[in-house]
Write a protein that binds this DNA or RNA. Sequence first.
DNA 1: AATATAAGTCAACATGGCTGACATAAAAAC
DNA 2: GTTTTTATGTCAGCCATGTTGACTTATATT
Lengths: 164, 164
Amino acid sequence: MADIKTGANPLFLREEELRQCIELLFFAYRDFTAGPDEILKEYNFGRAHHRVIHFIGRNQGMTVSELLDILRITKQSLSRVLNALVEREIVEQRPGVVDRRQRLLYLTEEGKKLEQKISTIQRNQVAKAFVEAGGDAVAGYRKVLSGLINEEDREKALSRILER
Amino acid sequence: MADIKTGANPLFLREEELRQCIELLFFAYRDFTAGPDEILKEYNFGRAHHRVIHFIGRNQGMTVSELLDILRITKQSLSRVLNALVEREIVEQRPGVVDRRQRLLYLTEEGKKLEQKISTIQRNQVAKAFVEAGGDAVAGYRKVLSGLINEEDREKALSRILER
DNA sequence: AATATAAGTCAACATGGCTGACATAAAAAC
DNA sequence: GTTTTTATGTCAGCCATGTTGACTTATATT
């Protein structure tokens, strides 16, 4: 089957392979967000809330600017979601000590619980995929996905992920 | 740095590693959709149109039901996007020959051009990441992402991706 | 002839993006 | 010490894209 293509036109196979990998990313992302969505729905939260909870959880005490830079949305968009989370006592804001203009972001105890609940699902899902795929595969996964991150801020993103 | 964690609590490292891999997926997906978004904006299309164009392009003559099943959205949501694409002569609908209730979906010549334009960007982006990461990494990437797809329809999704 | 299926439509609503304009407090620069 | 910049927030309105529910039409299946 592949022989025909390989023999006749290796570039076609390459294109085909690339397209497959693109689709794989679509399907994986689609199914990877489905689990959290269910739980969030119980709380009347959406995917936007999830992202905020996730990154604050990973980065307690981060500033609003930092969060905006990660999410790549406007502050008006963030504000809606963030205010809802503060109101529901999932997220807490404290003025910065060195720069009092800043409102540093923290998960409350309840927020931590929710974060834990959601992220456990995702971690189990990833863990399962990792076990099935094996350690080398995980390394490959990391390499490729790192390479997909925009070059200009790859280091920024990766250091945010890794320096912890 | 990692030594402390490794020695003291290997489970923490594992959780940490999993969290990193989750974030990697977020950042990669974020930056992977940025390129197409720019082009689509010129046409006044959005990501929803992109998905439709992509899957029809990959699967000329597919039915509406099949497309709905892939996208996991309601037919009402799809209809808005699909009608726009038909009106703009990007997508064409032809009645099925064996089952005339079906409206089989095809990209027009113009649609193919647009699809090509968008997908070239993404393929280049993926190709670059693959070259940087190496062949083994690509295999790992595929394994892990396959594992992230919902088990119930993994075969369906994968066969759709691979049987071509 | 009755029922089920593929597809479409109308209407109303929710979520989460966006822009633009403006406000406030605190830090930094002059 | 006054001016300017920065971090954050807010109001108002728009757009894209998802949802549910109710109903229609044509065709296939039973």
